[in-house]
Computed example of a mutant assay.
Amino acid sequence: MSEIDPLKYPVGLFLKPEAITAEHLTAWIATIAEFPQKIAALTETLTEETLTKTYRPDGWTIRQLVHHCADSHMNAFIRFKLALTEEAPKIKPYFEDQWAELPDTRSAAISSSLKLIEGLHARWTTLLQSLHSEDLNREYIHPEHGKRFSLGETIGMYAWHCEHHLAHIAIALKN
């Protein structure tokens, strides 16, 4: 296996455990619940100039990272709701790299996305804490990856996603 780029993947890649335990789920849901406070704490005093810093050459700016998290987590929340209300729905992928280049992502104040993340994560956490084991086994189909993802696995992937981008912001702040 090739070496993982520590700037691109500062917390490593998400590795799905062989068996997802209650302890995994508790930790992952806590990470998702705590994310709004953590990203707000990292970004609350940043200047417009600081928001243009990147975590690696050709990487996204801090501003783009914050807006990306709002976009990505909105999509994730909708995927959860689809999987809970439909039988293995095929979700609609989106071009996150292109979304990151849209005018709102490149120039809008991050306060709008921070507010969105706060409300979204409150709702998402309520939903995640209410799931039963049969709910965790529900799946959606991701056509871009050509595979099914269980909601249990997806909780882990988005907990990883939170930590992944918090690390990117922390690296950018050191640059």
Results as ranks from 00 to 15, higher is better:
Lys115His: 12
His67Ile: 11
His145Pro: 00
His73Val: 01
Pro89Tyr: 06
Glu144Phe: 07
Leu131Pro: 09
Lys92Ala: 09
Asp5Pro: 07
Ser112Phe: 14
Ile110Asn: 03
Leu65Tyr: 00
Lys8Ser: 03
Ser133Tyr: 00
Cys69His: 03
Ala172Met: 08
Glu139Ala: 06
Lys38Phe: 00
Pro93Trp: 00
Leu25Thr: 10
Leu127Arg: 08
Cys69Val: 13
Cys69Leu: 15
Leu46Gly: 08
Leu13Met: 11
Leu7Ser: 08
Lys147Tyr: 02
Pro143Glu: 05
Thr54Cys: 11
Leu102His: 06
Arg79Lys: 12
Leu120Glu: 05
Leu120Phe: 07
Ile117Ala: 01
Ile62His: 03
Glu87Ala: 13
Arg79Gln: 09
Ile29Arg: 11
Thr154Tyr: 15
Leu7Ile: 03
Phe35Gln: 10
Leu120Asp: 04
Tyr158Cys: 06
Glu48Ser: 13
Ile155Tyr: 03
Ala172His: 02
Glu163Cys: 05
Arg79Thr: 04
Asp135His: 15
Gly156Val: 07
Tyr55Asn: 06
Glu23Gly: 01
Thr126Arg: 13
Pro93Ser: 15
Asp97Arg: 10
Ala159Ile: 06
Glu134Cys: 00
Asp71Asn: 09
Phe77Ile: 02
Ser130Cys: 05
Lys8Leu: 14
Asp135Val: 01
Ser133Ile: 09
Phe95Leu: 12
Pro10Gly: 09
Leu151Lys: 08
Tyr140Arg: 06
Ile110Gln: 09
Phe95Gly: 00
Gly146Arg: 02
Ser111Ala: 15
Arg123Glu: 15
Trp28His: 04
His168Ala: 06
Ile141Lys: 04
Ala76Met: 07
Asp71Ser: 07
Ala88Pro: 01
Leu127Val: 04
His68Phe: 10
Ala33Pro: 01
Asn137Leu: 14
Gly12Arg: 04
Leu166Val: 08
Glu44Gln: 15
Gly12Glu: 02
Leu51Trp: 11
Phe77Lys: 02
Glu18Ala: 13
Leu173His: 06
Thr105Arg: 13
Ser133Trp: 00
Asp97Glu: 15
Ser113Pro: 03
Asn75Met: 04
Pro17Ala: 11
Ser150Pro: 00
Met74Lys: 10
Pro17Trp: 07
His121Val: 09
Trp60Gln: 04
Gly119Asn: 14
Leu13Arg: 14
Ala76Cys: 09
Leu15Gly: 00
Leu120Ala: 08
Gly119Tyr: 12
